[in-house]
Design a binder for these strands. Structure first.
Lengths: 155, 155
DNA sequence: CCTAAGTAGTTGCTAGTGGAAACAACATCA
DNA sequence: TGATGTTGTTTCCACTAGCAACTACTTAGG
């Protein structure tokens, strides 16, 4: 089977970029409308929810979301003001601070997750068969793994 | 053939998001290093290069890149300062302003395009066969079209 | 112990982004 | 000729995110 011209094969990536941009925008609107929360909160809340005790050290959390510490400090400030997260001491280490989901924080996460998933279900899944979804997942995982290696953070 | 559980099929989208993020970061580094230009310039330069006379009205260009007019004003300011674009009058309409690529602007675009393509060639294409690329393109186009319809700008 | 060096998290500063609204210059249409 | 609409710019504001300086604490070495 002949390989298509490179130019034409690149269109696959362009299409993925456009789909990502458009669907992300839909996602932002949906989250704002149905959950009253910005997409930017998602990563932090997911990581906290999945952590044991729904809590993580600041630095662990910063690493998990691939952001700087000062970034995390300020994001946790926001979430604390919103009542979704509270800071507590990290036991033995007097320097450490743990961010922990409050009861409301857990509820908020579940809501966010519900809206997030439902947006994917209605705007992505109907356009990909099971086989197609498998192809996308396989290829994209390889691409991401390679790119992260290139960036010096394999994982 | 049984449909995989929804949860598992969603992983395809998550993988695409992560791949997009990582490859975009690689792209930014590459463009900065090899062309000395930010990725944010790409869209504007492409649209200008492909336009007749390498020039477009400000409002047309703003529409083309899906950004506001004030955004475009500032981006053209940057590109003008860098010597890649110049503003000229829009002939019959005294209000209008056309942004036009300078000679350097054309050279810069070609350079940017070369680096951009080569990043895709080395970080995406090797991980997708022709058949896989076709699947990705087909699905992502449908997703993007639907999302844009949802956002109220079909196209 | 006690000091030196390192680590965790916060804060001040800075540069940049991008939208909304006000605005000036011009066009169009009655 | 006004009234209204358009085009592009500007001002103002809120937000983002990194760097570097700082505080508070821990740990290692003498």
């Amino acid at each position: 089977m002949p390989t298509r011209p490179t130019n034409e094969r690149r269109q696959a990536w362009y299409a993925a970029v456009r789909a990502h941009g458009a669907l992300t925008e839909v996602m932002e609107q949906q989250l704002e409308a149905d959950a009253g929360m910005p997409l930017g909160w998602y990563d932090v809340l997911v990581n906290l929810y999945l952590a044991p005790g729904h809590a993580l050290r600041m630095s662990e959390l910063a690493d998990a979301v691939l952001m700087s510490r000062s970034w995390l400090t300020r994001r946790i400030d926001q979430l604390e003001r919103a009542g979704l997260v509270e800071r507590c001491s990290a036991g033995d280490d007097g320097r450490g601070v743990r961010a922990r989901l409050t009861r409301e924080g857990k509820r908020a996460y579940l809501k966010l997750e519900r809206v997030h998933s439902s947006t994917i279900d209605t705007h992505f899944l109907p356009y990909a068969t099971t086989a197609e979804a498998e192809v996308i997942q396989r290829v994209m995982k390889r691409v991401a793994a390679n790119a992260r290696r290139e960036l010096g953070r394999p994982e």
